[in-house]
Structure formats: C-alpha cells, structure tokens
Simulated scan of single mutants.
Amino acid sequence: MKPVRSLARAMLSGIFVVSGFQNFQNPGRLVPAAKPVTDRVTPLLEKTHPRIPTDTETLIRVNGAVQVGAGLMLATGRFARPAALVLAGTLVPTTLAGHPFWNNDDPATRKNNQIHFLKNLGLLGGLLLAAADTGGRPGLRWRTGHRIGHSRRSVQRAVRTARREARIAVRSAATARRLPG
C-alpha cells in the first residue's frame, strides 16, 4: 500500500508546489482578488503580533512559500500529516479570495468560480484524509488508549502483588508470635 500512498501524496501536493511557486514569484496579479480577504485578516494579525507584515503582496508571498514548503514535505512523506494540515489551512483563504462565486453576476464567471471552489473543497477533503492517514500504523488515539490500558493493567498487577505480599507478611508475623522464642 505504500507506493499508492506515496503516489497519491505526490499527486495531491503538485498543485500546491506549482501554484505556490508562481504566487511567490508574481504576487501582484493576485492582489486585487486577495485584498478583501487580507483586509479582514490584517486586524487579527496586528493583534497577535504587531511586527508581522500585513500588506497583501507579502501575505500572498508568505502563503505561496508555505504552500511550496508544505507541498514538498507532503510529496516526500516527511511530516506528511502536519504538512497536509498546513496546506489545508492555506487553502481556505486562497479559495475564499480566488473563487467567490457568490459575488459574480455574470453566469459564466459564476459557474467557473463555482467549479474551482468545489475543486478546492475536494482538495481540502483529500488533505484532511492525508492528515488523518497513519500509513497503516496505529493512530495516536489507539496508541494512547493502548498505553493507558497497559498502564492500568500494570497498576492492577502491582496492587494485587502488594496485597499478596501484605497477607504473607501478616501470616509470617502471626506465625512468628506463636512460636516460642
């Protein structure tokens, strides 16, 4: 199953590496579409950290760089699950800024943006599956539950052993008192 996972990760990440690189190199073409989204995000960024650059072009470049980096990580299988989550996070503002079909009056433009919006939702679903994929190994939830169960059994064994040893000690003490000495 590993070759299928590797191929699927590479195929899923390809769009992010290519478009992220293009957006990093030439962010100016996206500024008009991204401006409404970045204007809404800017106050939140300024609250969290005042030194973060908040101009639209810089935010597009950062998003592109993150997409390239996380896309390459997903494609190579290095930190694939966190990379998929990061890509999912970058996809949300990209989709909202790039394909707001609800704002289009022209039916052809509306239909085109709606198709791209739904395509991005499909990519988001694929990224969420990639983020949840454990590669056939038990997931964190199972391992945690298994470890808790193992620890619980170890504690129960220790309690039984302590009780048994206490009973033996009590019997030994009672026997020692009865012996003449």
Rank of each mutant, 00 (worst) to 15 (best):
1 M>F: 10
3 P>M: 09
3 P>V: 03
3 P>S: 11
4 V>Y: 14
6 S>F: 04
7 L>A: 15
8 A>L: 11
9 R>T: 05
11 M>W: 13
11 M>L: 15
14 G>E: 05
15 I>E: 14
25 Q>I: 01
25 Q>Y: 11
25 Q>L: 15
26 N>F: 04
34 A>M: 13
42 T>C: 08
44 L>N: 02
46 E>W: 01
46 E>F: 03
48 T>V: 13
48 T>C: 01
48 T>K: 10
50 P>Y: 12
52 I>M: 10
55 D>R: 02
56 T>I: 00
56 T>N: 00
64 G>D: 06
65 A>Q: 11
65 A>I: 03
66 V>L: 10
67 Q>K: 06
69 G>D: 04
69 G>L: 13
73 M>F: 06
73 M>N: 01
76 T>L: 13
77 G>V: 02
79 F>G: 07
79 F>T: 04
80 A>G: 08
80 A>F: 06
81 R>V: 00
82 P>K: 07
83 A>E: 05
85 L>W: 15
88 A>H: 09
96 L>E: 09
97 A>W: 06
100 P>S: 02
100 P>I: 01
101 F>E: 08
101 F>P: 05
102 W>H: 09
104 N>H: 03
109 T>H: 07
112 N>A: 02
112 N>C: 00
113 N>M: 09
115 I>P: 00
119 K>M: 12
122 G>I: 11
123 L>Y: 08
124 L>W: 05
127 L>Y: 06
130 A>M: 11
134 T>V: 00
135 G>C: 09
136 G>D: 06
137 R>S: 14
138 P>W: 06
140 L>I: 13
142 W>G: 01
144 T>W: 13
145 G>M: 02
147 R>L: 12
147 R>C: 08
149 G>Y: 11
151 S>N: 15
161 T>I: 07
163 R>W: 04
168 I>T: 10
168 I>E: 15
168 I>S: 07
172 S>H: 10
173 A>M: 09
173 A>Q: 14
174 A>L: 13
176 A>Q: 06
178 R>A: 15
181 G>H: 15
